[in-house]
Amino acid sequence: MATTIHLPIVSTCSVESCGFNHDGCRAGAINVSGDHAACSTFVDSDTKAGNADVAGVGACTRTDCTFNKDMACTAEAIEVGASFDTADCLTFEAR
Rank of each mutant, 00 (worst) to 15 (best):
F67W: 11
T61R: 10
A77C: 14
A59F: 07
S83W: 07
T74L: 08
A82K: 13
A75K: 07
D88T: 02
D53S: 14
D88Q: 05
S17F: 04
T41P: 00
H6G: 13
V80D: 04
C60N: 08
G28N: 12
N31K: 08
A87D: 00
V15F: 00
T3D: 15
R95G: 13
R62W: 13
A52D: 05
D35T: 07
T4E: 14
D70T: 11
V43I: 08
M71S: 15
T86C: 04
E76F: 09
T3L: 15
H22Q: 12
F20K: 04
G28F: 11
C60F: 04
S83V: 05
K69D: 13
S45K: 05
C39Q: 02
F92Q: 01
T66M: 11
H6T: 15
C39W: 01
E93I: 13
E79W: 04
S17T: 15
D85L: 01
P8T: 13
R95F: 09
C18M: 06
L7V: 11
G56P: 10
S40W: 03
F92A: 04
A27C: 08
E76I: 09
C39A: 03
D35Q: 08
I30R: 03
G34M: 06
F42L: 01
P8K: 12
C39D: 01
G24C: 03
